[in-house]
Design a protein around this nucleic acid. Structure first.
Lengths: 198, 198
DNA sequence: GTCTATAAAGTGATAGAC
DNA sequence: GTCTATCACTTTATAGAC
């Protein structure tokens, strides 16, 4: 292996760890599995990171920072608030169907953080990030439809995250697309009901 | 240790495993940790179970079978459908606050099942059980208020489970009681909106 | 900087005395 | 049936050659 700056090596290991966690779960993300995925030797791992915990910490920070707002953005046209929300949820569902293991990995990493001494703040950061992304998307959607939220947008954002979280878990368990569609219909109706023409 | 029938020993080990999973997480539920919790020797474990996998299998079956319908039942009086649902959600939230690690353990066990070869059906069984419990409670609540659901009750049940699941995850992350109350208000309003006087 | 080799500790599972 | 002792293996982490 050529000499690679430590920073690059760290990044490569984080990427490899994410792939291992997604395909095989957190429990299978041993240092050996990670370096194998990255095509490195075991010693290189500890040259870049002082411990496996340090990598997991950085991995969670990484996924938190790079989680995109995949839910609401999209071409709005002259769609209603309800339809914008429904379409956004559909985009998320499509993403989930396309890469279920990735979303499963996100859930596992959250729980891993909640169980690891000193990493709970990372889980909180992860969800704060979700709420922020959701609030931004909901604000844009409201603006495009000339509506305003009858609750603080932060509360609506939390509802959206709660609904997508629950949707994710239930779909991962039984992969029932029809049931998921029913949930999304309900969610779009209910959330749009929190908007008023202004 | 006195001679204990294998069935009792298995039950005791399952109980011990559940305590370990709840307090320290699935990853920490090693055979040694479990027998220590149960006050047995390591060899006793393999006398009762042929493998750790067999125990985990039985543990998940056990929690699935014993999960109670804690959500909706309660004194109804002449409360509205909305208030019955809201009160049921509150009872669940109180349960969650009283024993957060237990609910966290349930989520972890679900994900463990989804990741383990051949155990996915158990996760599906777990959620089928949730849906059944929720549907029964919703049916009773509708009967007591002379309403009927405008959707199949199975779909409403799934919505209730999705909402409580999402509520659970978000509360476990930030322990924000006020936000949880806001989510429950929304959920009760939205679900009650699916009932019509009949 | 990168490797091989190995240490030190933990894992599930078993053998064999009693 | 129940125990102690131990096997075979995997884990994280490090030492030391190059």
């Amino acid at each position: 292996m050529p000499r690679i700056p430590a920073a690059e090596r760290r990044a490569a290991l984080v990427q490899a760890a994410l792939r291992v966690v997604a395909t095989q779960g957190v429990a299978a993300a041993t240092t050996r599995a990670i370096v194998a995925e990255a095509g490195m030797s075991l010693a290189s791992f500890h040259y870049a990171f002082s411990s496996r915990d340090e990598l997991m910490h950085e991995l969670i920070s990484f996924v938190v920072a790079h989680e995109e707002a995949a839910v609401l953005p999209g071409p709005y046209g002259d769609a209603s608030l309800r339809d914008i929300i429904r379409a956004g949820l559909q985009r998320y569902a499509d993403l989930l169907r396309a890469d279920p293991l990735r979303e499963q990995a996100m859930l596992e990493l959250t729980q891993q953080a909640l169980r690891s001494e000193g990493m709970e703040p990372l889980a909180r950061l992860q969800y704060d990030h979700y709420y922020t992304l959701a609030a931004a998307a909901l604000t844009t959607a409201a603006e495009h439809t000339g509506t305003s939220w009858i609750l603080p947008v932060e509360e609506v954002a939390r509802l959206l995250v709660v609904l997508t979280d629950g949707l994710t878990v239930s779909w991962l368990v039984d992969r029932d697309d029809a049931a998921a569609a029913s949930v999304m219909d309900f969610a779009a109706d209910a959330l749009a009901g929190l908007g008023r023409q202004s």
